[in-house]
Nucleic acid binder design. Structure first.
Length: 423
DNA sequence: TCTGGGGTCCTAGGACCC
DNA sequence: TCTGGGGTCCTAGGACCC
């Protein structure tokens, strides 16, 4: 049996832990740069604020209904997420952390009824220990657990836990749920299915295998079997190292100046390189992209990406910044107003697998020295805060930086702010 | 004025090999 | 007139997820 644990309105719930005033009030959380709505409390959903809507377009509703607004506080959310996941380990050692606010658990020796009871216990304990409300869905496969969880969230009668195995009339249930509710079926697949008169889960599990495979790929076919209770997607307990790492941001203002762009790219490269080292990897490839504001239709548009192969795979911030800037020089065109830029590492391998290049002067000793330096920098920055030590290329002013005007305190990770809350 | 960021997997088609 | 068959690897782009 699988259970999917999903934190309710996660970002909002994190804010509410430290700010009881927000209870039962409409609350929204904005994306980076205070751009779009990325999380809503139930009260905010009832005001019909759409998920993903641009902040500037909903000012009227915000003012009229006194909606509380916050910038994304990822330091806080990551830390709360870590605590929730750790707490879940008390209930099953078999856990897959699926996203910042979701985890699959698997259970081997439970009887149906007792498992439902057990999940209620999990829900209550997580609320008590950490203060985050959760919903849990139970099923024979991950797809069914995910579906159950959606049902648990939508019907208050279930009080946050739904076990699809206990459903008395599964056929009736499957006839009521539309295909787009299925995990893995998006807009495009929904359109294809509807065109073939497949509208509900019931239709889906009775559709032709061959047609499904040709039109919705092997994944579409696996989903069908998962819905019928055959496991096709296993629990991935061990987090795999990332195969690609991206760091990108929209700017707080338009940027035309090459030097500012260079600063931004150097910053993003630093962030991505830190992630690379954290998983003991190196990259063979680096891409840099820049783009103007696609929403400003009346302004000249330009977007481009340049990829380069590195002579030796590396995770050295200095080397990566050097190549990132070479990439930037290839695509930079003056006189455009840039709104977004980013850095991408795509061919990532374990650092144990570095191969030396015949034509490079570096040897293994050089590489070990570089690695030691990076380790020291990472440790200092971890202890004393981001960018305590940084490359000068990152710049000192960073006028292009994103805006986070509504940021709450880093209640759990910043010592000064912890003192503040306790006082 | 103001529109996010970071991932994964799959497939088709091209290049290349014998 | 008539131009094979089978395989691998790589990449770009699409679709999906949170």
């Amino acid at each position: 049996m699988f259970a999917l644990v999903d934190c309710n309105n996660f970002y909002v719930s994190c804010e509410r832990i430290f700010n009881p005033k927000l209870k039962n009030k409409p609350v929204i959380i904005l994306s980076n740069n205070d751009g779009c709505v990325v999380a809503l409390s139930n009260e905010a959903k009832q005001l019909n604020i759409p998920f993903g809507s641009p902040f500037f377009k909903i000012q009227d509703i915000i003012k009229k209904h006194n909606v509380f607004v916050f910038s994304s506080n990822y330091e806080l959310y990551s830390d709360i997420s870590f605590r929730v996941m750790n707490a879940l380990l008390n209930f099953s050692p078999d856990i897959e952390i699926y996203s910042i606010d979701e985890a699959f658990l698997s259970f081997k020796k439970f009887k149906q009824n007792s498992l439902t009871q057990y999940c209620f216990e999990i829900k209550n304990k997580i609320k008590k220990w950490i203060g985050v409300p959760i919903s849990i869905g139970i099923g024979k496969t991950k797809t069914l657990a995910k579906l159950s969880c959606e049902i648990a969230k939508k019907n208050p009668d279930y009080k946050g836990v739904f076990n699809i195995n206990e459903c008395e009339n599964i056929e009736k249930l499957f006839k009521e749920i539309k295909v787009e509710e299925i995990w893995g079926i998006g807009q495009k697949q929904k359109d294809k299915l509807n065109k073939r008169n497949i509208y509900t889960i019931f239709d889906y599990i009775n559709s032709d295998d061959n047609w499904l495979k040709i039109n919705l790929t092997i994944i579409g076919l696996k989903i069908k079997y998962e819905l019928k209770g055959d496991i096709c997607f296993e629990l991935n307990e061990i987090p795999q190292p990332k195969k690609s790492i991206v760091s990108s941001r929209s700017f707080g203002k338009d940027v035309s100046n090459f030097f500012e762009l260079k600063e931004a790219i150097s910053n993003y490269t630093t962030i991505a390189a830190e992630k690379l080292r954290a998983q003991n990897s190196v990259t063979k490839n680096i891409s840099v992209f820049i783009a103007t504001n696609r929403f400003k239709k009346d302004e000249p548009q330009y977007a481009n990406i340049y990829t380069t192969k590195l002579p030796i795979a590396t995770a050295n911030t200095g080397t990566l910044i050097k190549y990132a800037i070479i990439c930037l020089e290839k695509i930079f065109k003056p006189d455009y107003k840039y709104k977004k830029a980013g850095v991408m590492f795509t061919e990532i391998i374990s650092k144990e697998k570095i191969e030396l290049n015949l034509f490079e002067e570096k040897n293994f000793n050089d590489i070990l020295k570089e690695e030691k330096l990076m380790n020291v920098i990472d440790k200092i920055n971890e202890k004393y805060g981001n960018n305590t030590i940084k490359y000068l290329a990152l710049g000192l002013n960073n006028l292009w930086k994103m805006q986070r005007n509504q940021l709450s305190k880093r209640y759990t990770t910043n010592w000064n702010e912890i003192l503040e809350i306790n006082c």
